[in-house]
Design a protein around this nucleic acid. Sequence first.
DNA 1: ACCTGAACACCGTTCAAGT
DNA 2: ACCTGAACACCGTTCAAGT
Lengths: 189, 189
Amino acid sequence: MAGTREALIDAAASLLDEGGPAAVTLREVARLAGVSHNAPYKHFADKEDLLAAVVARDLTRQAEQLRRRVRGLPAIDAVRASLHGQIRHALRRPHLFRVTYGPWTTRSPELTHAATAGRAAFVELVAAAQREGALPAGDPERLASLLQSVVHGAVHLALAGHLARQGKGRADPIDLVDELLANLRTDTR
Amino acid sequence: MAGTREALIDAAASLLDEGGPAAVTLREVARLAGVSHNAPYKHFADKEDLLAAVVARDLTRQAEQLRRRVRGLPAIDAVRASLHGQIRHALRRPHLFRVTYGPWTTRSPELTHAATAGRAAFVELVAAAQREGALPAGDPERLASLLQSVVHGAVHLALAGHLARQGKGRADPIDLVDELLANLRTDTR
DNA sequence: ACCTGAACACCGTTCAAGT
DNA sequence: ACCTGAACACCGTTCAAGT
């Protein structure tokens, strides 16, 4: 049955969202998918390989959704939409976010490809915004790394409860990335 | 014996650095400390509580070391030294870094206190640099969060292999935080 | 107060066997 | 090709008992 593999990925994704990587036991994944507790091994090398499939599928879907959303927008708006979208997605599915950018011992080609493609697409948006003069000149890959760093760091700090959520210092990840973007834009004169 | 607790923390820290959280088994921790495999439970509530002690001790030591190193420096240099120090430490001990800012279900008071104190000290440095006119005005906590975000995000991306390590786009975490600092400083005119 | 040895429940993974 | 049931090794945690 070809549906089994997809059902296993669905089950793993659901368990991951609800309880984190520790809650993704192959036994429970199999039970949710309606197969025996070791049927997953016929589809995935091990638990990490299953998680890699969950992450790769999500990265691909996110990239598709982003492409649809930014079509026709000025490049700088596309950059901002991409960053905001990554933040919203990460805050909505924190366990998935942590696993996605956590340590991998498996080098799943599927996962590597999805991650590389997503990053390349973002660098392209940044380069286009630079050509429009809406972001400062300089190597686009490096500027993209700076923006990605703020997004990732702010999300990690927010998930760990290390960002002030009220008072004068209040800052959520969206605020912080907007502040950086504003700073970069005023620099272009 | 009062040394047992410290020996357990030493053993856990060592196993964490070598093989990550999964390698920190209470059995191996106990073996390294020369006690029975469940003696740790007389000193720590559970595995997470032991890891919290490892992290809290490290945060405290890092804060002390930073304080010594920046004494007498102009505030902006202290800010930069703090950020660079965090990056070097994180890259040297990646597992410890990930655990430190990862998900905690335990609310260890020891850990909470160490984290809060460290953050407050950094905000103070940022505020001082603002008073010296070396960083743009605005809420210091918020600006500190932006700087911390870049550090954390750049380290996470570097550890995950998502920063270009060669070519034009080459960017390591030190480069990225320096780029942000330069940007913030040119803004002050 | 601190430690030990046995035991329990749970999990990732393997394997021989079935259709 | 895909699935099942039994089994193995390992781990976190608990408990009764020792000094």
